[in-house]
Design a protein around this nucleic acid. Structure first.
Lengths: 216, 216
DNA sequence: CAGATAAGCGGACTTGAGTCCACTTGCAAA
DNA sequence: TTTGCAAGTGGACTCAAGTCCGCTTATCTG
């Protein structure tokens, strides 16, 4: 059942299904490339929107027409890599399922991949998540959305397969298991606590493993 | 061993141990009262710093000398209630320990209390946490600090008491267990997912219960 | 091809955060 | 009591975010 996990992407389709005007599409590309270059040069958090607009040679109005804020811009920049990661994971899931690898092992594999993904994209993710989970806008495009769908899906399948007891609150558990990977906390653990990626993965593995036993 | 858990409070002692000048202390009090009133009237997120300064009849400079930002101001406003909560919990721990209540049950009790505490103070906590975990400044006064110390302490004691297997990464687990209570995620679960407090508590209970079994 | 028009564009403007600094005042030592 | 000065004060100023609105242009229709 892992095959119906969603792949989420922005694409360049407007909400109405209408595609952009040619000049607008060119500008979007220009802005994204300019932003990527500036981010690489000075670090994501040291680049402001006005600076991006100026470097791209467009007005602030244009920039904000395409991307309502820095979070959205950063989300667009991550889009390709997010889709790539999702595809890689889906391919692995398929392979593992063929090889009769238990769902819970697949979940551990996913979480481990996510730890590395989060680490690799921490600066962009910081901006993306600074917007907050609460904004309705674009919520289905937020990283948390597909991460949640994946974890939740794996939990459900694990229950169906008898790997987990029935009656677990998979909706809550999916959110809870993902919450230590929200960037704020993740970066805190990495930068202040000094945890290694392996240590974080192992910690999550322990949490996951525990679920197998406890129901009462 | 629960008796050496810390109680964290701001107090009105300067970092150098020097106490404030009388006029300054009066202003701090005035500012806190004004802010509290404005927050109650218009909601925490709808009140800006300039507004607080004006309503209190002081300049922005004065306001910012006392409180480096809105987060710090909100933290000061929560101070009393935080200390109260901590004391209530410590008292309960003592009582429970006398009655031979297992450490893990005490942890569940604490987490349940924390769920209610977080819910009750969500707006102020949102401001406090918007500062982010990463700022070194005042990190020991942040809610997460004493929450972490408490959970970590309970884990350790549980291990010493043989309730949990040795070798658990208690430092990681304390952070991880608390992370679904970071306001962003908590509010998301409450407001978007629509989870009840009971459901959240129960979910946490399941996570905690799992730890008893899994080590390998 | 011409005209209509929705989409796109740019930059001035508004708003709030936070800094700076010249001026004032409480307090303690002489 | 005077006086030195660290602490306190107020508000102008800087900086970035995000909005607004009058002008321009791609694209569609006749």
């Amino acid at each position: 059942m892992t095959s119906d996990l969603p792949i989420i992407s922005l694409g360049n389709i407007d909400e109405d299904g209408r595609s952009e005007r040619k000049d607008a599409a060119a500008n979007r590309k220009l802005i994204l490339e300019t932003a990527e270059a500036l981010f690489a040069e000075k670090g994501v958090e040291n680049v402001c929107m006005a600076e991006i607009a100026q470097a791209a040679g467009v007005g602030k109005g244009t920039l904000y027409r395409r991307f309502a804020n820095k979070a959205e811009l950063c989300l667009a920049l991550m889009d390709t890599q997010m889709v790539e990661f999702q595809n890689r994971m889906l391919a692995e899931f398929r392979k593992m399922t063929v090889n009769r690898v238990p769902q819970m092992a697949q979940l551990e594999f996913f979480m481990d991949g996510l730890v590395h993904f989060t680490d690799a994209h921490a600066p962009l993710l910081s901006e993306v998540q600074s917007e907050g989970l609460l904004q309705e806008r674009r919520s289905t495009e937020m990283p948390h959305f597909w991460q949640y769908m994946t974890v939740h899906g794996l939990f459900q399948t694990a229950i169906d397969a008898g790997e987990l007891p029935q009656g677990l609150d998979t909706e809550y558990l999916a959110d809870a298991l993902l919450s230590p990977l929200m960037v704020d906390i993740f970066r805190f653990q990495r930068e202040v606590r000094g945890f290694s990626l392996e240590r974080i993965s192992e910690g999550l593995r322990v949490l996951i493993a525990g679920l197998r036993h406890c129901v009462d």
